[in-house]
Design a binder for these strands. Structure first.
Lengths: 225, 225
DNA sequence: CGCTTAATTGATCAGGGTCAATCGTGGTGG
DNA sequence: CCACCACGATTGACCCTGATCAATTAAGCG
C-alpha cells in the first residue's frame, strides 16, 4: 500500500522468469507454499468449490475460465510463470482453473497467508498488486472482446503472447486453437481463418501448428491498435 | 485480510443505499474524503492522468470506460451509490470516468489513505474488498461480452440493473441507449431492436424511454442463463 | 411552437458462425 | 521402421446475426 510500485504493464499476460519464482528477497510468500504438479488438461479447481487455496505458476500455462449453462466457455486469462491465480475473497471460487500443459505450481493456504499478512505488510502489498494486476488484465480483456473484429483480436493475442517468447519474433503457443477461440470470443474456424489471412498478407508465418513467426510486427500493431 | 467477508454477489452492479455511504461505523474511510459534485456528462478523470485520487459514489451513476484509437468506446462498468472506483496501483489511470447523470462523490487522496491503511487494518481490508469486487465484476463482464448474443446481453443487463430499483419490476435507466450499447459491445440500433423484440414477446413494457417494466422475469432469466 | 437530439424502425450488407469435408501430425502398435 | 489411426487444424459453402446506412418518430427545451 505504501510504495506505489508501478505494475508491469497492462497486458493480458505477465512476463517473469520461471526460475526466480519462489525465491529471492522480492518474494514475500516464498516460505509459505507447497509445490504441486498438474498434468495437461487436469482441473486445478472448479467454479463453486471452497477456495481455501490459491496458486502461483512456476512453469507451464494455466487457463482460468467460466462456463455458461449450455457449455459455452469463456477463458478469462492464461497464466504463466510468476502469475498468481485463484486468489479471491468469497467462500468459493468464481471461476475454474485447468492446466493447459504440464504445470508446476505452488499452492498457498489462504487462511495461513492471511495470518501472515497481518504481521508482514510486504505480503499485503504483494497480494494487492496481484489483485490489481488481474483487474487491469480483465478490463483490457473486456475491451478486446467488446470492440474488436476477428483479425484485430488474433493480432492482439499474438502480440501479447509474443512478450513471453525468448525471441520476440517467434511465438510458441502452449494452447490449442480452441483455447485461443474461447479466450477471444470466437470459433475455432475463425481463429484458423484469421491466422491464414495474416499469413497470406505476409504478416506472419505458420512454421508449425504451435509455432508462429511474426514477420511484420508493425502491421500487427496497426491491426491491434 | 483476516476476516473473509463474502463479497455481496458477482453481479455487474452493486446495491447499497446512498444515504448511508460515508457514515456509519462500517465505513473505514468516512473521515478522509472530500465531497464533490459532478454534473451530467462531465469527465471525472481520464485514462493516462496521474491517479492521486479515487472516489466513492454517494448518488448518481458513473461510467468507467476505455477508448480505442478510432474512437470506439467500451464501458467497463457503471458505478452506483456505495461503489468505489478509480482505485488503481500504477502512477496513472488505466481508464476514464464520466458522470452519467449529476453525481455526488467523495474523493480520497490516495497517498493519504495509504498512510492510514498502514495503521488501520480495517481500511486495508476494505480496499481489498473493493478491488476484488471490481475484479469479479470485470470477469463476469468478459463472459457477457464474449459468449452471448444481443438479446441475451440486453436481458442480462436489465436483470442486473433491476437489482437497484426500489421496485424489482420497474427499471429506471440512468443512461442512454448509446451507453448501454457501449457497455454490451453492441450498436445503439441493436439495443433498441432487442428491447422492441422483448416487448413484442410480452417480456417487458417500455413505459417510457428511461423506464422499463419487467413483466416476465422468468423469461428474462432464461434468456440470460 | 419549432428546434435539437435521442430513439425507433426499415432495408441492406458483411463478418463471423455453422456444417461438412479434407488435410496434417503425432502417437501407437504391428 | 513404417503404416495406420485419431484428433486437431484448415478450408470451403452457406447462413444468420448484428452492423451499417438511411428515414422517421418521439421527446425535451428554449
Amino acid at each position: 500500500m505504501t510504495a506505489q510500485l508501478a505494475i508491469s504493464s497492462p497486458t493480458a499476460f505477465k512476463a517473469r522468469t520461471a526460475w526466480m519464482a519462489g525465491q529471492g528477497t522480492s518474494e514475500p510468500l516464498r516460505t509459505a507454499g507447497t509445490v504441486v504438479h498438474v498434468s495437461e488438461g487436469r482441473e486445478i479447481f472448479a467454479e463453486g468449490e471452497d477456495n481455501d487455496l490459491f496458486y502461483k505458476v512456476i512453469s507451464g500455462v494455466v487457463r482460468v475460465c467460466k462456463f455458461l449453462s449450455d457449455g459455452r466457455r469463456q477463458i478469462e486469462a492464461f497464466h504463466v510463470a510468476g502469475d498468481v491465480f485463484g486468489f479471491e475473497m468469497g467462500g468459493e471460487y468464481l471461476l475454474s482453473a485447468e492446466a493447459v500443459n504440464d504445470c508446476t505450481l505452488v499452492s498457498y493456504r489462504r487462511r495461513h497467508v492471511e495470518v501472515m499478512a497481518q504481521k508482514d505488510h510486504a505480503i499485503t502489498r504483494h497480494l494487492f498488486e496481484v489483485a490489481m494486476e488481474n483487474l487491469a488484465q480483465a478490463q483490457n480483456h473486456s475491451l478486446l472482446l467488446g470492440r474488436r473484429g476477428a483479425i484485430e483480436k488474433v493480432a492482439s493475442f499474438l502480440l501479447t503472447w509474443s512478450a513471453h517468447s525468448t525471441d520476440q519474433r517467434t511465438v510458441h503457443l502452449a494452447m490449442t486453437r480452441q483455447d485461443i477461440a474461447d479466450y477471444l470470443g470466437l470459433t475455432i474456424e475463425t481463429v484458423s481463418r484469421s491466422l491464414s489471412q495474416l499469413e497470406r498478407d505476409g504478416i506472419i508465418v505458420l512454421s508449425s501448428v504451435r509455432e508462429i513467426l511474426l514477420k511484420d510486427i508493425e502491421a500487427l500493431e496497426d491491426l491491434a491498435a
